[in-house]
């Protein structure tokens, strides 16, 4: 257990109206508001949590899904440790757009090795009865696009929300562990966000 927890930035991307803000609010404040307005630009909340003995502060960035807010959100992709690609299981188009979101993220976040960057895929609105995207289709997309973990969630009834965010943290920590073996300790990695505290290595 480290005295000061490290700050991990995860970012929620996906089409407008798939429930990114609701996922964040459900996870951090455990509330669900049916009257949320479109997110304009970006918003974020912090949450402290413990995963596998590591205390981390998760900084969850929620972004505007609408195309017209693109220029406002893209500057905030940089420095992300993990990207949560979100679609709605009752909206096939939002699923088809996942590849575009992944591309947009890789481009603006300036990720050096996109194939190694941790993505997590979320199929939200599990509570809605009329599904357009089957779980099998989603899993297949994840396998074909780099083996991303897939979660079916519902911000409304809180299904799987915490599990999804915790998985994101695990992915980041695993990535860091791998990185720590490769990078000599006396060099500075300019591409990675500096951690606020001593790294909680194992």
């Amino acid at each position: 257990m480290t005295s000061k927890s490290s700050l991990l930035k995860v970012i929620l991307l996906g089409d407008g109206g798939v429930g990114k803000s609701s996922l964040m609010n459900r996870y951090v404040t455990n509330k669900f508001d049916t009257h949320l307005f479109h997110t304009i630009g970006v918003e974020f909340l912090n949450k402290e949590l413990e995963v596998d003995g590591h205390t981390v502060t998760l900084q969850i960035w929620d972004t505007a899904g609408q195309e017209r807010f693109r220029s406002l959100r893209t500057p905030f992709y940089r420095g992300s440790d993990c990207c949560l690609l979100t679609f709605s299981v009752d909206d096939n188009q939002s699923f088809l757009n996942l590849s575009n979101w992944k591309k947009e993220f890789a481009y603006y976040a300036d990720v050096k090795e996109p194939e190694k960057f941790p993505f997590v895929v979320l199929g939200n609105k599990l509570d809605v009865p009329e599904r357009q995207v089957s779980g099998e289709d989603a899993r297949q997309w994840c396998r074909e696009n780099g083996g991303h973990p897939y979660f079916e969630t519902s911000a409304k009834d809180s299904t799987n929300v915490a599990a999804a965010f915790e998985e994101a943290v695990r992915r980041v920590l695993a990535q860091e562990d791998r990185g720590e073996h490769l990078i000599p300790t006396d060099t500075v990695d300019l591409h990675r966000k500096p951690r606020s505290g001593p790294s909680s290595c194992c």
Binding site: N25, G41, L45, F76
Partner: peptide, 14 residues
């Protein structure tokens, strides 16, 4: 407090 926090964070960042 909770309903405005995320948006305030975001607005400040912008």
């Amino acid at each position: 407090y909770h309903s405005s926090l995320a948006s305030l964070n975001g607005l400040e960042a912008h």
